[in-house]
Design a binder for these strands. Structure first.
Length: 157
DNA sequence: CGGATTTGACCCGCGC
DNA sequence: GCGCGGGTCAAATCCG
């Protein structure tokens, strides 16, 4: 279990409520760091959906088999950085961009490139302070390694 | 050539 | 029922 330390300084990360959970191990972040979830979510107008994990009926596809809401833990960071995409050690693939009304700041949607990894990431610049970046993580990584997904095999043995 | 990025369109839930 | 807002897809494109 290699703890990976992102390239950005934790000192720059805003501290919010204690949101330490299982994620701290998954993300490999030091416990010194406090996770922020509801605070930023409220500020950004993001609805807090808690962890209402639904297996989903899935009996019928009915057209597009779009994935419903699943167990998505929200973890939000606010870092002082000039680059939107902070290298946190995982490979992210951008899959969407949206313009936020009331603000000229676009919102980028990233997703973990690892197959089977449901982790999504939302990057948005702070409306008030463009030098700050709001990074919101959705979900927990399935894999311990940066780019591997064979952890399940390891887990079973 | 393969994989990431782009960008508009589409979908879904919710409020009116 | 319609419109809006937010989130996602996917074909074309770009880049190493």
């Amino acid at each position: 279990m290699a703890h990976y330390y992102p390239s950005f300084e934790f000192s720059d990360v805003f501290e919010f409520n204690d949101w330490l959970n299982e994620e701290d191990q998954v993300f490999g972040c030091p416990q010194n760091l406090n996770y922020a979830a509801d605070e930023i979510s409220n500020s950004s107008g993001i609805s807090r959906s808690s962890s209402s994990h639904r297996e989903g009926p899935g009996s019928r596809d009915g057209g597009n088999g779009r994935e419903k809401k699943q167990n998505t833990e929200k973890v939000a960071f606010k870092t002082k950085s000039e680059v939107e995409v902070l290298d946190d050690g995982f490979k992210w693939r951008k899959y969407g961009k949206k313009m936020v009304k009331n603000s000229p700041n676009p919102r980028n949607y990233y997703k973990c490139s690892v197959e089977g990894c449901p982790v999504k990431k939302r990057v948005e610049r702070d409306t008030e302070d463009p030098r700050y970046v709001l990074t919101t993580y959705h979900g927990i990584h399935n894999h311990r390694d940066l780019l591997s997904y064979d952890f399940e095999t390891n887990l079973r043995n």
